[in-house]
Simulated assay, not measured.
Amino acid sequence: MSDHTALTPARLEARIDLDALRSNVRRLREIAAPAQVMAVVKADAYGHGMLPCARAALEAGAAWIGTAVPQEALALRAAGIEGPILTWLHSPGDDFAALVRADVDVSVSGQWALHAILEAVERTGRPARIQLKADTGLGRNGVQPHDWPLVVDEAVKAERDGLVKVTGVWSHFACADEPGHPSIQLQLTAFHEALAYAEAAGVRPEVRHMANSPATLSLPESHFDLVRTGVAMYGLSPAPELGLPADHGLRPVMSLVARLASVKRVPAGHGVSYGHTYRTSEETRLALVPAGYADGVPRAASGVGPVSIGGRRYTIAGRVAMDQFVVDLGPGGGADPDPRPGDEAVLFGPGDGGTPTAQDWADATDTIGYEIVTRIGPRVPRVYHPVDSSAPNA
């Protein structure tokens, strides 16, 4: 997990604005009220650094922490994160006993998972905290309606026997980022039906939850007791159709900044990077940015990725390589910027002063903002502002 603060300027660094993250969590709490907020920190907090972001979210009033895989939840517990944590993506053979010992809430999406948890309870001698997930139409994890009574009834029996505590009932939207999509209301109806059966069977959950980031921002009827905010917490819009981050009072948390490795003048007709898919049209200056697809810069950004250097916006020239790419700065002169090696190149950030955003990169590469930030690799240091006291050498 990336969880450290760089001591010296790096060739490339991901600057994480923890104050922006705290502000985003407070804003999402306002939007969701009276529902609580679960801060989702899966995938190393969408590339932002799991532990610092979890701590900052809790400081800002998040009531729950959400993770995908068990290792994430256990790492948070080992680092001293207290309070409720939910983990939801499991496979047979996972260490359910460790989750039970750590008082992590474990999602149940099928009868096999419930049986594995009950075996862990027998081994540990401790009751488990579980949440029942209904597949209301997404078609991924979750219990299908025809199996829901079987799983609910078995969970209720286990609760009466003192083996588990059913702390939640939940589901997940397929198309909440597409306002007006017909599946949204169908899924809400299916969730209400699943809740009605569970409650009639004797389930008294602490939390009922269905809303992800887009539903938190656009579907108040889906908030129930708790909303699960992932990408919105990091200041990105779940979808352009829902508006820009600023439209929701959110600010992007990550800025990806490199330091130029070289700036040199080349003649007209000079090939640039692998395959010479770009050739200079005139005598010009080429800047080398030491960031590539090994760092998480999409190779699909070749020829289209936006970069800001010296306050001016440029486009990647030629192919993105494993460790570097090139920007054509133009011939220079007049009011043109005159960058030097060591000067900053902003790949994306909050968009201040016209600099690119993660959404700009997503648009350029035909993907989503989630992928742009999450793919930033472990060899890119995360630099926290203000300094995260949990990080080594802080």
Rank of each mutant, 00 (worst) to 15 (best):
D323G: 04
A232Q: 09
Q71L: 12
A68V: 04
P350D: 15
V304R: 13
A57K: 08
G137K: 12
D94G: 07
V327S: 00
T357E: 02
L244P: 05
T124G: 10
R15A: 01
V383D: 14
M1N: 12
Y197E: 10
R123A: 15
G342T: 02
T229W: 07
L236V: 05
Y314C: 01
T365N: 01
H146P: 00
A258I: 00
A97S: 14
G369I: 11
D343E: 05
D360F: 07
R313N: 13
T87Y: 01
A32G: 06
E13T: 03
F224R: 12
L347P: 01
A200L: 11
A35Y: 08
G330M: 03
L242E: 03
L74G: 02
V152D: 10
I81N: 00
D105C: 14
L138S: 02
A174V: 09
L217W: 08
R27S: 05
A73D: 02
R160L: 11
M210A: 15
D95Q: 04
T277Q: 13
K42D: 07
H192C: 09
K42E: 06
D323K: 12
T229S: 15
A20D: 09
K165T: 13
L186R: 15
P238Q: 11
K133D: 05
P298H: 04
L288V: 00
P34N: 12
W88N: 14
V41Q: 11
G305Q: 07
S218Y: 12
L86E: 06
E122D: 15
F191K: 12
R279D: 04
D360H: 14
P70W: 02
E119W: 00
S222T: 13
R129F: 10
P214T: 07
A39I: 00
D343M: 03
S218T: 14
D295M: 05
R279Y: 11
R204F: 01
R313V: 14
A128I: 00
D44S: 07
Q324Y: 12
E282R: 13
D135W: 09
H4F: 13
S107V: 12
R22E: 14
A287L: 02
A6S: 15
G83A: 04
D366P: 00
S109P: 00
H90E: 09
V263N: 09
A113N: 11
I16P: 02
R208W: 01
E30H: 11
D336S: 15
G333T: 09
E199F: 03
H276I: 05
A198R: 11
R208Q: 14
D95G: 03
S262H: 12
A128C: 08
R29N: 06
A301P: 03
L217F: 10
D44G: 01
P179G: 12
A68K: 03
G243T: 02
D295T: 01
G80K: 02
G66K: 07
V373W: 11
G110M: 04
K42Q: 08
A194E: 09
D295A: 02
T374Y: 06
L86S: 07
R123E: 15
G125F: 00
A75R: 13
E283F: 00
E282G: 13
G333M: 02
L244A: 15
P182D: 06
R160W: 03
A301C: 05
G249Q: 10
Q185N: 14
W64R: 09
K157M: 12
V272E: 12
I117R: 08
A394Q: 05
V231F: 07
L132F: 07
P392K: 12
V41I: 09
V266P: 13
T189R: 15
V203T: 04
S262G: 14
Q359D: 14
